[in-house]
């Protein structure tokens, strides 16, 4: 049964996890200080996922750029593709926090949403 050592990145504590797993999945996680550590380890061994953040240009806003993020984590391998997919996007001001900027990014069924409010330029 393989064991993997990893650092939990779910919070700044950065617990050192020890993960026992086999082809059926994760069997045992130790070293975590909370439940999130276990969830992280289970995902990380089988299908590592990350939240991606970037910015996109705003047309007619008080600021030129608005910050965005994937609404939930997406497969780690798709991070760069996600950034590329955002290269062609521009949004019209006003932009609200949580507004969908791009649906189903890279076929992940995850939306990219705005993380900042940008008002219209008067």
């Amino acid at each position: 049964m393989p064991t993997k050592e990893m650092i939990c990145i779910s919070c700044p504590m950065g617990c050192m996890l020890s993960v026992d797993y086999d082809e059926t999945g994760v069997l045992k996680v130790t070293g975590n200080q909370c439940k999130r550590g276990e969830i992280y380890a289970s995902k990380e061994v089988i299908n590592p996922r990350r939240v991606v953040t970037s910015i996109v240009p705003v047309i007619g806003g008080v600021e030129d750029m608005v910050s965005v993020k994937t609404a939930t984590d997406i497969p780690k391998d798709l991070m760069k593709d996600c950034i590329l997919a955002l290269k062609n996007i521009k949004v019209q001001a006003p932009v609200e926090i949580g507004q969908v900027i791009l649906e189903n990014v890279c076929g992940t069924n995850v939306c990219v949403i705005a993380t900042k409010r940008v008002e219209k330029k008067l």
Partner: peptide, 22 residues
């Protein structure tokens, strides 16, 4: 600071810098 990692203690969710500030 547009990356996530803010507010886990206060809001029990991981926010980006601008979201936390807002």
């Amino acid at each position: 600071c547009i990356h996530p990692g803010f507010g886990l203690h206060t809001f029990k969710e991981e926010l980006t810098g601008p979201e936390y500030a807002s």
